[in-house]
């Protein structure tokens, strides 16, 4: 599979990983997402930008059905993952979330050891046959989360004792440990300082090799730095979606331009 990475990546970029058609989301009587159509390619970083309350996080949470946990939330329309409708009655959201991992705005490690934080996902999904296997998975995930060197000597210390940036990378490592295909990130750097942010951004760039990453961000610079595709949301509408370079240099819609130049938002 990795014999010819360049070729592989080219092919993969043409694949559509997630495709959403006519998605509507309602919170009680509020129409939060209005008729969104989007095709998210595989092995790409896609950024969702837009002012607060525009629905970008809500739409992100539709992609792994985290909105199911909110009683008053209702989703209409189709979202396909590899051609399968994730809102089909036969789909178990638990199984879906194993394929579509998520990293949240605030670092939320479990109040357990670093090791147990990472090992939790593989354990519940039965990814490890024995202890040695699990050790290997944990190490691999921590290395991929770019935090291995900092924590390898204290794997059994509590994960909540790490600094904010370390905690967020731990959460990313935890998410990749379950071998997802898509990684959703909801403003992963909003609670971090610039140094931790740049570490996480580097990490996101590396993750692109194997995953589709969808990232919600408030920072347009961050979107420009890490993403290949950008979607601009405004008041629940998907205003514009295209290559990141094109959105930031040559936006087609006046609202996108206003937002990027700081006139709305």
């Amino acid at each position: 599979m990795y014999d010819n990475p360049n070729l592989e990546r080219k092919v993969a970029q043409q694949d559509t990983k997630i495709s959403a058609r006519n998605v509507q989301v309602f919170y009680g009587d509020t129409h939060a997402i209005k008729d969104v159509n989007i095709e998210i390619p595989s092995r790409t970083v896609t950024a969702f930008i837009g002012p607060s309350g525009c629905g970008k996080s809500t739409f992100l949470r539709c992609l792994n059905r985290m909105n199911d946990t909110i009683d008053i939330c209702r989703v209409e329309g189709d979202i396909d993952l590899d051609g399968e409708n994730i809102y089909d009655k036969r789909v178990d959201p638990v199984q879906l979330r194993a394929k579509v991992g998520m990293v949240f705005q605030k670092p939320n490690p479990f109040p357990k050891s670093i090791y147990d934080n990472i090992a939790y996902g593989p354990r519940i999904h039965g990814l490890a046959k024995n202890k040695a296997d699990l050790d290997e998975i944990v190490e691999k995930a921590l290395r991929r989360g770019a935090i291995w060197n900092e924590v390898k000597d204290r794997l059994h210390a509590p994960g909540t004792g790490l600094s904010g940036g370390q905690q967020q990378r731990l959460c990313i490592a935890r998410a990749v440990a379950t071998e997802p295909e898509v990684l959703l990130m909801d403003e992963p750097c909003s609670a971090l300082d610039p140094i931790a942010t740049s570490q996480v951004e580097e990490l996101i760039d590396e993750l692109r090799d194997q995953y589709s990453v969808v990232i919600v961000t408030h920072s347009m610079q961050q979107a420009a730095r890490v993403s290949q595709k950008t979607a601009f949301f405004h008041l629940g509408n998907l205003v514009e979606y295209g290559d990141t370079g094109q959105i930031f240099t040559n936006p087609q819609d006046s609202r996108t331009e206003s937002y990027i130049t700081g006139r709305i938002g």
Binding site: T69, V94, N108, G121
Partner: peptide
Amino acid sequence: VPPSIRDAALGLGASKMQSVFHHVLPL
């Protein structure tokens, strides 16, 4: 118990019951 803990467990693909019994109840 902060909802972020439940989100973390559900986001990893834990079932509702796993998230309650493994994380929420101990806390």
